[in-house]
Each structure stands twice: as C-alpha cells, then as structure tokens.
Design a protein around this nucleic acid. Structure first.
Lengths: 193, 193
DNA sequence: CGCGGGTTTGATGATGCTCAAGCCCGGTGG
DNA sequence: CCACCGGGCTTGAGCATCATCAAACCCGCG
C-alpha cells in the first residue's frame, strides 16, 4: 500500500528513509479508495487534500458554460493529484477531479504535509524537485500547444506518455490536447498512412 | 539598484531582511546591463544564470525549422527570467531570451543561489511561494490556451497583463497567445465594435 | 525624404469544429 | 444464446476559425 510512495520518494532523493520516518509518513497519510466515476474533488469545493495515487487512474477537468468538459490533467499511479490553485489558496476549485479506474489514494492535507515535512526533510527536497520538473513539463506542454498543429501534438503525446494511451479512452486524450475526438480520430488515420 | 529586489522579497515574506542579509544578497548577485536586442541566453547555451529584472523588458522564444519564432514568455521589471529546464538540468537550452527594452539585471548562478539561500532562509520560502504561483499561473494559461478561441484568450490577457500591452508590440502578444499578428489585429477590430 | 518597424487589410486556403449518422464491441438481461 | 443497449470510435458534409501571402499604410527617425 505505502510501498509505491516510498519508492517514489526514494527516486527523488538518494538516501533511504529510516524506519521511523516511514512510520511517520504512514501515520500522516490516510488511505482512501475511490471507485470509477466517483469524485475526488468537485467544482466549488476547496481542495483540502493532495493525493498520491498508489493505484488507479484519474482525470482533472473544467466544465464550460455549455456543459462541455475540457480535460486539463490525467493521472495514473505514482502521480500526485490535486488542484494546486485551490490547495494553496483555499479558494473554491474551478476544476473537478474524478476517477477513471478504481483508485487507491494516500491523501493528506496541506497542514499535515507541512508538519510532516518538518520531521522528514527528504520530503522538502522532494517537493522542490517535483516543482522543478513540474515547471519544466508545463513549459514544454505550453510551448507545444501554442506552437504545433494537432498532428504533431499528438505525436509528441504518444512519445512522452505511451502509458496514458493504453489507459484512457481516445476522447480523453483529445480533450487533453485541446482538440475534438473527431479531429483526433482523423489525425490518427492520417498518420498511419 | 537592489531596492526592487528587496521589496520583491519583502512582498513574499512578511518579515524584513536584516542589514547583514541584505549585504549577503548584494554580494551574491552580480549586476548586468543589457541593451535592446542583446541576448541574455541563446539557444544551445546552458542557462547558468537566473536574472531578477530590476529594469527593462525581455522575451523568451523558441525558433522553429522555418525561421519562425514563437514567444513563450514575456518579462518586465520585478520578474525573474531564466530558462528553467536548462537552468536546473544543465542541458543546452532550446530557447532564447533577449532584451526588448534596455535592462538592468541582477544575475546569479544556481549554485550561488543555493548557497545564499542557506544563509538567508527567507529566500527558500520565497522560492517555494514563487513555485506555487508559477504552477498556478501556468495551469491557468494552459487551460485558457486549450479551451478558448483567440478572442477570449486576448481578452483574458488584457485583463491579466495590462502592463504588458503597453510595453510590447502587438506581434509579441500575438505570438505569446499562439496566434498570428494578423489574427490579433482582426480580433481587436472586432472586439471594439 | 526615405527607410524600417510595426500594424492593418484583403484574398485564399488549410485546419479543426459542429452536427449527425453509423459502426464496433463488451455487457446485461430475457 | 441472442437481442439489445451504451459507450467509444469513426466517417461525412458544411462551416467557422485562423494561417498564409501579399500589399498598403503609418509613423518616428536619421
């Protein structure tokens, strides 16, 4: 259950966690199981928790005036899922996060995490590195989105996130890329030839 | 010269910097003046420095195969400018950063900044908050880019970055928004009526 | 005056969206 | 075991948005 989280942390920092640290981590997080289609966070709520996904798959989306949905993030196991704006500012979230494949989450509030990080310094370093990588990934995604047409964006996506292709339906990917499912369908057909 | 940086830091953390801290900061950063059109960072180079802009305006862009340029970031005074991917990974940068309005920069290497932050803890907190805000801003920009047509993106931009409109030419803004200057020109004409 | 950016305008075409229909396939219930 | 259903995927026709290319315009400046 917690093993994924421990190896995740270990991938970020070189040193190993002590037994005591592992215990503190275990008691600070809280296990939550969610089934397909259940919400982890709904528009209007405050994102009190961040979740480490130890199993399953989720999506983050925003809904527009006309009932449409735009997917802005996809998550699978070993990802952290939260709505960062709401989580840090405590304003109501404009986004929803729901479950695609039955999930096991390790959740923690911002305050608990801060307190925990005081006692387990590795987590501070981990957060810093995660922020670095996150900023880099976002910059890349943004560059790609404003620079390239649908076909190239899809190519890039396939190369960078092969596992997502297997786990999520096509129309999720399309929405994530900022195109319609029809366009994605046609783009794929073209690129085969 | 350093005053902008001090007030910037002060805006992020509540407490004031001590005289000693200010001295340490002054000696850790290095002043660099750059004229319009000069490069702060060129494609292929490693981004050894991050720059606090105490005066002036700059742009970050990437160039495509056909000689075109896509602007991915715009900076004015009281912004930090660097290419984060290269700065943190030490890989050659795919982006350029050059100067639009004559600029005064306070620059520092990653190592020096880390060392400085050891001695001035306020900087660690500041970095954390900057990362938070940055992540939030990027998420918003991404959502807007994949969700809305040119006209709405421009509206949002005008609301969120009024000062940029005054400082940069239209075709910079267009490129930043991921549209052509012609389209932006027409969008503006429409929205007046 | 003429030059160099920056901006606008127009004509044309590509790209991607909308709406609507059909297909495919796995799951459910009779 | 088959009929049906729902969700996802594909296909097509028509349309909106936006890019491209080319020309003109505007204006500050040497």
């Amino acid at each position: 259950m917690y093993q994924n989280l421990f190896t995740y942390i270990h991938n970020y920092i070189q040193s190993s966690l002590t037994i005591e640290e592992k215990e503190m981590i275990k008691s600070a997080f809280q296990l939550k199981k969610l089934r397909r289609k259940q919400f982890f966070l709904q528009e209007g709520e405050i994102a009190r928790y961040t979740a480490f996904i130890s199993k399953g798959a989720m999506r983050q989306y925003i809904s527009d005036e006309k009932g449409g949905e735009r997917i802005v993030n996809l998550f699978i196991e070993n990802y952290w899922a939260t709505e960062r704006e709401s989580f840090t500012t405590l304003n109501p979230s404009r986004y929803n996060i729901d479950v695609w494949e039955d999930a096991e989450l390790l959740i923690i509030t911002r305050e608990s995490f801060m307190a925990l990080a005081e006692k387990v310094p590795a987590l501070i370093e981990m957060t810093r590195l995660m922020d670095d990588r996150n900023a880099i990934a976002n910059q890349r995604r943004l560059t790609s989105t404003i620079s390239y047409p649908a076909e190239k964006r899809y190519e890039d996506f396939v190369n960078n996130h092969p596992r997502f292709i297997e786990r999520f339906p096509q129309h999720f990917i399309a929405s994530f890329l900022g195109i319609t499912k029809e366009t994605l369908s046609r783009v794929k057909r073209q690129s085969i030839k």
